[in-house]
Amino acid sequence: MLPPPLSSDHQVPFDDRGLAYGDGLFETVLLRAGVPVLWRYHVERLAKGCQCLGIPLPCQSALNATWQGKPSAELEVLKLILTRGSGGRGYAQPEPVTPRLLSRRAPFQPSVQRWQQGVTVRLCNLRLSRQPRLAGVKHLNRLENVLARQEWSDATIAEGVLTDSEGLVVEATSMNIFWQQAREVFTPRLDQCGVAGTLRAGLIDKGAVAQASLPLDQFPDVERLWVANSVQGVWPVTTLLAADGSLLKRWSVNEPDPIQRLAHQLLGYA
């Protein structure tokens, strides 16, 4: 049986494996009037991550307890962290495994201006390493994303685009990528690395988005470009910069935007 969820006021023990090794998973969930949005997709991704890492999945009542209760605002963000718990010798897992579930919720407001006016993104120098076993999983070891985000401090740049070691576009530092070509909308395949977002999953299930590979040298040639996640919604990209800051491509913010409209319906923003 899992211990009860810890609040943000509790300290994580020194020997927690999530703290020591990144041995765990997390979810970032939009709450609307206290109810989680795309909850099924979040639970499914958490379950896939638990299966991948060999961590027991908390029971549904324990997961639901993290968001049930009086909301502090109309919109909130719930962050769940699930670690393998404490113990074990070195990298060897403890026997038995007693996972630790932590949660925290905070008021949130999306950037409507970025929805409407679009954003600037840049290419990152860092390349994601390939590890198919972890592909799609939102695990706690996000050092590649942390290092990539350190590459710029310009507040006018909203996101950084990450490619893998083979030169294929994968994702942004904290969002998924979508592009339009020949009137079809695509998102990168995430069978080698990257995080499979829940909004991305919803759009794929709706038949609005197909998965494809996009080599970096073809990236500036796409007709339209978006970055998106299940909290912020969809940001149209208007400017693409190289890692050195030079201009690679500009796009206009076109209306109607069917991907943004459908995504925001899924999130309750429309």
Results as ranks from 00 to 15, higher is better:
Gly197Cys: 08
Ala158Met: 06
Arg84Gln: 09
Gln150Arg: 15
Gln60Ala: 15
Leu128Trp: 02
Leu203Cys: 04
Val227Asn: 02
Ser230Lys: 02
Glu151Ile: 09
Ser111Pro: 00
Leu126Glu: 12
Ala155Thr: 14
Ser72Lys: 15
Gly87Met: 11
Gln11Leu: 15
Ile81Leu: 14
Arg250Trp: 07
Asn254Trp: 11
Arg189Pro: 01
Ala65Ser: 15
Ser7His: 10
Leu134Ile: 07
Asp154Thr: 07
Asn145Val: 01
Arg133Gln: 14
Pro36Asp: 03
Leu126Gln: 11
Leu80Cys: 07
Pro236Phe: 06
Ser230Cys: 12
Cys50Glu: 04
Tyr269Lys: 09
Ala201Pro: 00
Phe14Ser: 15
Leu140Cys: 09
His264Leu: 04
Gly197Ile: 05
Lys48Cys: 12
Leu190Tyr: 06
Gly167Pro: 03
Leu240Met: 09
Gly245Thr: 01
Leu31Asn: 01
Cys193Trp: 00
Gly167His: 10
Pro110Thr: 12
Val234Gly: 02
Val37Trp: 04
Trp39Ala: 06
Arg114Pro: 00
Arg105Trp: 07
Thr198Lys: 03
Asp205Phe: 05
Ala106Cys: 14
Gly18Gln: 01
Asp164Gly: 06
Ala106His: 14
Ile157Pro: 03
Leu214Tyr: 00
Ala135Ser: 12
Leu57Arg: 12
Val121Asp: 05
Ser7Leu: 07
Gln109Val: 12
Arg104Met: 13
Gly18Ile: 01
Gln265Asn: 13
Leu162Gln: 04
Ser213Val: 12
Leu78Glu: 06
Arg224Gly: 06
Leu102Trp: 13
Gln232His: 11
Lys48Tyr: 02
Gly202Val: 02
Leu240Thr: 12
Cys50Trp: 01
Pro215Ile: 03
Pro188Glu: 06
Leu134Ala: 12
Gln150Trp: 13
Arg142Thr: 04
Gln109Ser: 15
Gly18Trp: 00
Leu31Phe: 10
Phe26Asn: 04
Glu184Tyr: 10
Asn254Tyr: 10
Gly167Asn: 08
Cys52Pro: 00
Ala263His: 08
Leu30Trp: 08
Gln11Thr: 13
Asp23Ile: 05
Ala92Tyr: 12
Ala201His: 04
Leu267Pro: 04
Ser246Gly: 11
Arg149Trp: 05
Val161Cys: 05
Val146Phe: 09
Gly49Pro: 02
Pro71Cys: 08
Ala148Ser: 05
Leu147Ala: 11
Arg104Trp: 14
Leu241Asp: 00
Ala270Trp: 07
Gln68Tyr: 03
Gly207Arg: 00
Glu159Lys: 11
Arg130Met: 12
Thr238His: 10
Ala62Met: 13
His10Asn: 13
Ala62Asp: 13
Gly118Ile: 03
Val161Gln: 02
Arg100Leu: 14
Leu147Gln: 11
Arg149Lys: 14
Val137Met: 10
Ala270Lys: 03
Ser153Trp: 05
Asn125Met: 09
Arg149Asp: 12
Val35Gly: 05
Lys249Ser: 13
Ala155Glu: 15
Asn64Cys: 15
Gly268Glu: 03
Thr238Gly: 08
Ala263Cys: 11
Asp257Trp: 01
Ser7Met: 02
Asp164Cys: 04
Lys70Thr: 15
Pro215Ser: 08
Arg104Asp: 14
Asp23Asn: 08
Trp39Gly: 07
Leu216Val: 09
Asp16His: 07
Gln60Phe: 08
Val237Lys: 10
Cys52Lys: 03
